[in-house]
Design a protein around this nucleic acid. Structure first.
Length: 829
DNA sequence: GCAAGGTC
């Protein structure tokens, strides 16, 4: 029998592709414990899912109240499997092996993941374990790597382990300390970490600048100049110590200049200069640049990455987590362009690019070896495979690739200076001469500003003069993609995690809205950290860690030395922290309250706060509880956000409910309650549930929480209810639904009334749409597949669960029984 | 229940 060789990769996708290359396409896939194993001859290839084990403290440290946070510094740290199925599969395979090859990603974290696999394998296998390294999964590189196997680099892996343990100890000890100090346990704990906290400080610092900003008034003067009927705008400027200045800070001066220019009537051209500027095509996409470009299309960092991951899994684009901005040698741009020829969307652009004399892609500064820049694979989605957002992102990636092989654009800049009674005016024109890459990449601005051709000495008429009073503006808040760029610049986080960090800040209640705005809690956390644990909010902690990790990897320091030194620093931090624990806790609690404060309680004058019930739902309650029991309900969907905006009548802040796409402004909770109290139920007809037996009636009801429904008048004895839209006036028409014997409804909202129809039919249609949406959430189900399934009688997840896979495959073209089983497994899990 | 890093 042939010796059994087991190859371990970092992820399933890499396993499949490596098996394909090494087996020359003959490998078969089988499932073991729900994990894909690719096999041919004596070889088995299995993909991990990144880290399959994780670090944690032993169970005796589990309870936050029973353990002093400082004890975590010297607590034992244990490694536990986190992906049971994969770990079990790996053990089973290793037990049968004669030879094991580790082929995880070629970077530090990959070496650590490889070492984790090594340890698991060693428990059941004492034969040879080799390590192969390759930068990209191509025929040549993979064969070369497997022909020249190496050993695992334990020093490099130890560098990664040091990072893990330092992050855990600092993060857990400080998180528990702050949470306990502020008595915030459970879901609303107060977290701190090496990457999240410096990121949060960036946002908080910017907010501090904005708050401290003192606007200054200045004036700018614009004049419309005319030549042969062509009018263009010019701006006044003056010489300020050798540099050009447009802003006039003195009102008197501004008025004088304005009067002089206005009475001048004409201006004489004193200089005309032309120059052409080359506008180079952009670099290939790394993760950060991609997130930024997708951001200008309106996608959040999280959403952009999630779509890119789906496109990657479906095989349309390369791996989206990369720092690399240089295409690898084996990428053949012509061949890739070729694959788009003949398509409706991209065919013409691909052909125009192929017609260029030489095709030389642009290169960025960063060249790494793990993954190529994000580009299309050349495997094209068929029409209907992608939803609109997926298509938009896919098109962006395709067009970015096009742009990187396109030619530079050329602009002609025309600068004209004219003089009007001793004052100078300038106009800058900009004209696109060669469209270049803009022809295939319409995302970056290519707007022109036309200034007519002029010559020195010409006289221009002054058509209009405008003196504008302006104010200096505070710095702008960071948008998500700007934040990610800044993190990259500071060297914190990684390409795969930066967008998760932003999401974490939202989840922890540190930032709200988009662009993110820090809460009072965030400011207090940063305050506390700055005062007592400055290192954890500074980028220096990561810089120091990077230096230490390099030292470990190069054998100049050990894992023990580095982690002990870090522990010692944290001990010193805790010595100071503990002295001020009470003060820190009070400040945090006060800030938490400030984020939830709405206004005065109408019953006792104390403060109304947004609170959370034991069941987890939000409501408005009085801070005077239990003496004062005044409450108001809030809508049941989403997380409440207290807005700056507030209601004059009740001196109460407005509330916004954050619920992703369903986010809405609830407004003043006291107004909502008052409105409900004043409104009368409007009867529609007999209650479909109890109308026959108990004479219950269906009525439109306005609830104190602001929502509206069609419910039974016998509530709570009969709980029948149908949801109605929150906004707009509902009109009851004379038309009746024959099936349900209820009137059709029309909603007046904005300019266009829309027909809601019979409320029962409307709800049924809504449920059907929901079911289809749920189906489309499944892996690989787009609108086209959903339609095919509906034709076969499957239009909800329940239908799919109940169906016989082989039978459905028979009746549905292009869907295999295997795929149906996977969907069923997905639904079950 | 804590972090950050993989991957889905």
């Amino acid at each position: 029998m042939a010796p059994v060789r087991v190859i371990i990769t970092e992820k399933d996708n890499a396993a499949r592709r490596i098996a394909d290359i090494l087996s020359d396409g003959t490998a078969d896939a089988e499932r073991r414990n729900g994990v894909n194993v690719y096999r041919w001859g004596g070889t088995r290839v299995v993909g991990l899912s990144g880290h399959v084990v994780g670090l944690d403290f032993p169970p005796e440290y589990e309870n936050w109240r029973d353990v002093e946070p400082v004890e975590l510094i010297d607590a034992e740290v244990v490694t536990e499997p986190t992906q049971e199925n994969i770990v079990r599969t790996l053990s089973e395979l290793a037990a049968e092996a004669d030879e094991v090859v580790i082929a995880t990603d070629y970077d530090r974290e990959g070496e650590l993941i490889g070492k984790e696999a090594y340890e698991l394998v060693r428990e059941v296998f004492d034969g040879p374990i080799e390590r192969v390294r390759f930068s990209s999964i191509t025929d040549r590189e993979v064969h070369e790597a497997f022909d020249n196997p190496d050993d695992l680099d334990f020093d490099l892996a130890a560098a990664g382990e040091a990072r893990q343990v330092i992050d855990l100890i600092w993060g857990a000890a400080l998180t528990r300390f702050l949470s306990l100090s502020a008595r915030q346990l459970g879901n609303d704990f107060i977290s701190v970490g090496r990457v999240q906290s410096p990121t949060l400080k960036l946002i908080v610092d910017r907010e501090r600048e904005i708050e401290a900003f003192d606007p200054e008034t200045y004036w700018e003067l614009f004049a419309d100049l005319t030549k042969d009927g062509d009018t263009f705008e010019a701006q006044y400027f003056y010489d300020d110590d050798g540099s050009e200045a447009e802003r006039v800070w003195d009102e008197e001066v501004a008025t004088t200049v304005n009067e002089t220019v206005e009475s001048a009537d004409t201006a004489t051209v004193t200089s005309v200069s032309r120059r052409t500027r080359t506008d180079s095509p952009p670099d290939p996409f790394n993760t950060t640049a991609f997130i930024s470009a997708a951001g200008s299309l309106g996608y959040s960092a999280q959403r952009a990455m999630s779509i890119a991951e789906d496109l990657y899994t479906a095989g349309y684009v390369t791996y989206p987590r990369t720092d690399n901005t240089v295409y690898p040698d084996d990428l053949d741009p012509e061949a890739l362009l070729d694959s788009f020829v003949g398509t409706d969307e991209f065919g013409d652009d691909a052909e125009s690019l192929l017609a260029l004399e030489d095709i030389e892609p642009t290169e960025g500064d960063e060249e790494t070896t793990d993954h190529p820049p994000i580009h299309p694979t050349g495997e094209l989605p068929a029409w209907g495979d992608l939803e609109e957002d997926e298509w938009n992102v896919y098109e962006l990636i395709v067009r970015r690739f096009f742009a990187t092989v396109a030619e530079a654009a050329t602009w002609e800049h025309l600068r004209v200076v004219a003089e009007a009674d001793g004052h100078t005016l300038k106009a800058n024109g900009k004209r696109l001469v060669e469209e270049g890459y803009h022809a295939v990449y319409p995302y970056s601005s290519a707007s022109e500003n036309v200034v007519p051709d002029l010559e020195e000495g010409e006289t221009l008429a002054i058509a209009d003069v405008d003196l504008a009073e302006k104010e200096t503006q505070p710095p702008r808040r960071y948008g998500q993609s700007r934040l990610i760029k800044q993190m990259e610049k500071m060297g914190i986080g990684t390409k795969a995690t930066r967008h998760h960090i932003i999401e974490k800040l939202y989840d922890r209640g540190y930032i709200e809205d988009d662009p993110p705005q820090p809460t009072k809690l965030a400011e207090a956390v940063v305050d506390a950290a700055e005062a007592f644990a400055d290192l954890v909010v500074s980028e220096e902690m990561t810089a120091q860690l990077e230096r230490d990790m390099t030292a470990i990897a190069e054998g100049e320091a050990t894992y023990e030395e580095v982690t002990e030194e870090s522990r010692e620093m944290l001990r010193r931090v805790f010595a100071e922290l503990r002295e001020s624990q009470e003060e820190i806790g009070d400040h945090l609690q006060e800030s938490l309250k400030a984020d939830r404060r709405l206004g005065p309680c109408p019953e006792c004058g104390d403060e109304l706060l947004v609170r959370r019930s034991r069941q987890g739902s939000y409501f408005v309650g009085c801070d005077g509880f239990p003496d004062c029991r005044f409450t108001l309900p809030l809508p049941s969907t989403g997380e409440p956000l207290v807005l700056e905006e507030h209601c004059e009548d009740h001196d109460t802040n407005h509330v916004k409910m954050l619920a992703g796409r369903d986010t809405f402004v609830h407004g003043c909770p006291r107004c909502a309650a008052a409105e409900a109290d004043e409104s009368e139920d409007r009867i529609l007809g007999a209650c479909p549930e109890c109308g026959g037996e108990h004479d219950g009636e269906l009525a439109i009801k306005q609830l104190r929480s602001g929502s509206r429904l069609a419910g039974c008048t016998r509530y709570p004895d009969c709980e029948y209810s149908l949801p109605l839209p929150r906004r707009g006036d509902i009109e009851i028409t004379d038309e009746y639904c024959e099936e349900h014997d209820l009137p059709e409804l029309v909603v007046q909202d904005g300019d266009e009334p829309w027909e809601l129809g019979c409320p029962v039919c409307n709800y049924q249609e809504y449920q059907a749409r929901q079911a289809i949406d749920d189906l489309e959430d499944l892996n690989g189900v787009g609108p086209a597949t959903a339609e095919k399934l509906a034709d076969a009688g499957v239009d909800s997840p329940e239908d799919l669960t109940d169906v016989d896979p082989d039978d459905l495959a028979q009746r549905t073209q292009g869907v295999t029984a295997e795929t149906v089983r996977e969907w069923q497994a997905e639904l079950a899990g």
